[in-house]
C-alpha cells in the first residue's frame, strides 16, 4: 500500500499541474492572476499590521502594512469583472462603478459602504484595545447593513442592526468593560496565529475572486445559469439601481414576501430554531440561577455573628 503512494501522489500532482495549465489558458486567467497578486499584497499588509508576539512595538511595520493593504484595496476595485451579459457589459466594464452608469449615487454609496466595512474590519482585528475592537465590529455591521439596504434587503439590514449591533456587540462591550476596567490585559496585545489566519483568509478570498471570474466565463459561454453563481441579467439590472420604493406595489412587498417564505416554505426550520433558542435560554437560566453559597453565609442570609447581611 505504502509503495504505491509516491506513484499516486505523482499522478495527482501532475493532474493538478495539468489543471493549472489549462486554467491559465482560460480567457480571464490574466485577470485572475492579477487579482490574486493584489490579494497576496493585501494579505502581507494585513500580516504586518497584526499585533504579533515581540514585534508589537514596531510602528514601521504597521505603517507599511497599512499602506500595502490600502493599495491592494484600491487596486482590487479597478480589476475588471466580466459579467458576460451583453446589456450590462457596456455599463459595467470594471468593478469600479460596476453598478451602472445611470446611477452614480448608487455606485458611490456602494463603494463608500464597502470601504467602511473593509477598513473597519481591518481595524477590528488589528487594534490592541478590545473595546475598540468591539466598536469597530459594530461599524462593520453598520456598513454591512447599509449594503443590504442598497440591495433592497430591508428586513435583513434592520435585523442585522437589531440583533448584532444592538444586542451582541453590546454584550461584548459589557463583558469587556466589567472584566478589565483598568485597560487591556496582556494577552489582548497579541493576536493568536497571525500567519495562519492571514493565509486562511488569503486562500478563502482567492477562491472567492477566482470563482467570481470563472463563473462569469461560464455565463458568457452558454448562458449556463445553473452552474453560475452570478445572478442572471434580470436580477443584476434590478439590484443595480437603488430599490425604488416609490413604485413598489403591494404585490412585491418585501416583508410580506419574506414572511410567506419563512412561514410557508420553511415553517419547520423556523419552529425548530425557535425551540432550540428556547432550550438555550432555559439552559442559561439553569446555569446562572444556581445559588452560590459564600462562606459564612447560610440559607437565611445571616452570617455567623447573627447580623443580617441582606440588604433591605
Amino acid at each position: 500500500m505504502l509503495a504505491h503512494f509516491p506513484v499516486l501522489a505523482a499522478s495527482r500532482i501532475s493532474l493538478l499541474a495539468d489543471q493549472f495549465r489549462s486554467a491559465l489558458q482560460q480567457p480571464h486567467s490574466g485577470l485572475v492572476l492579477r487579482s490574486l497578486l493584489i490579494l497576496v499584497a493585501g494579505g502581507v499588509g494585513l500580516y504586518l499590521m497584526l499585533p504579533r508576539g515581540r514585534h508589537t512595538g514596531r510602528r514601521f511595520d504597521r505603517i507599511i502594512g497599512a499602506a500595502l493593504a490600502t493599495l491592494s484595496l484600491v487596486l482590487l476595485a479597478t480589476v475588471e469583472i466580466p459579467t458576460g451579459l451583453a446589456e450590462v457589459e457596456s455599463a459595467q466594464k470594471t468593478l469600479l462603478w460596476s453598478f451602472g452608469s445611470e446611477s452614480k449615487i448608487t455606485g458611490f454609496t456602494f463603494y463608500a459602504l464597502a470601504a467602511i466595512s473593509l477598513v473597519s474590519a481591518v481595524m477590528m482585528i488589528t487594534s490592541r484595545n478590545p473595546v475598540y475592537s468591539a466598536l469597530w465590529f459594530a461599524v462593520v455591521l453598520l456598513g454591512n447593513s447599509g449594503l443590504f439596504l442598497l440591495q433592497g434587503a430591508e428586513f435583513l439590514s434592520a435585523a442585522t442592526i437589531i440583533v448584532y449591533a444592538g444586542a451582541i456587540v453590546v454584550t461584548f462591550l459589557f463583558v469587556i468593560m466589567l472584566a478589565q476596567p483598568s485597560g487591556a490585559a496582556k494577552y489582548d496585545h497579541v493576536s493568536r496565529e497571525p500567519l495562519l489566519s492571514c493565509l486562511t483568509g488569503l486562500i478563502l478570498s482567492s477562491v472567492l475572486v477566482g470563482t467570481l471570474h470563472y463563473s462569469a466565463r461560464l455565463d458568457v459561454r452558454g448562458g449556463a445559469t445553473e452552474t453560475s453563481i452570478l445572478p442572471s441579467a434580470e436580477i443584476i439590472t434590478l439590484s443595480s439601481t437603488l430599490p425604488d420604493s416609490r413604485h413598489r406595489t403591494d404585490a412585491n412587498r418585501h416583508v410580506a414576501g419574506l414572511g410567506k417564505a419563512l412561514f410557508l416554505d420553511h415553517v419547520v426550520s423556523v419552529e425548530v430554531i425557535g425551540v432550540l433558542l428556547l432550550a438555550a435560554v432555559v439552559g442559561a437560566m439553569l446555569i446562572a440561577g444556581h445559588p452560590v453559597h459564600a462562606p459564612g453565609v447560610n440559607e437565611t442570609g445571616r452570617n455567623k455573628t447573627g447580623r443580617n447581611d441582606r440588604p433591605s
Binding site: 430591508e154 439590514s157 434592520a158 437589531i162 420604493s245 413598489r248 412587498r253
Partner: peptide
C-alpha cells in the same frame, strides 16, 4: 420603506 417601524427600533 417597508420596514418603517423596524427601522425606528433598529
Amino acid at each position: 420603506v417597508d420596514i418603517g417601524l423596524l427601522f425606528v427600533f433598529a
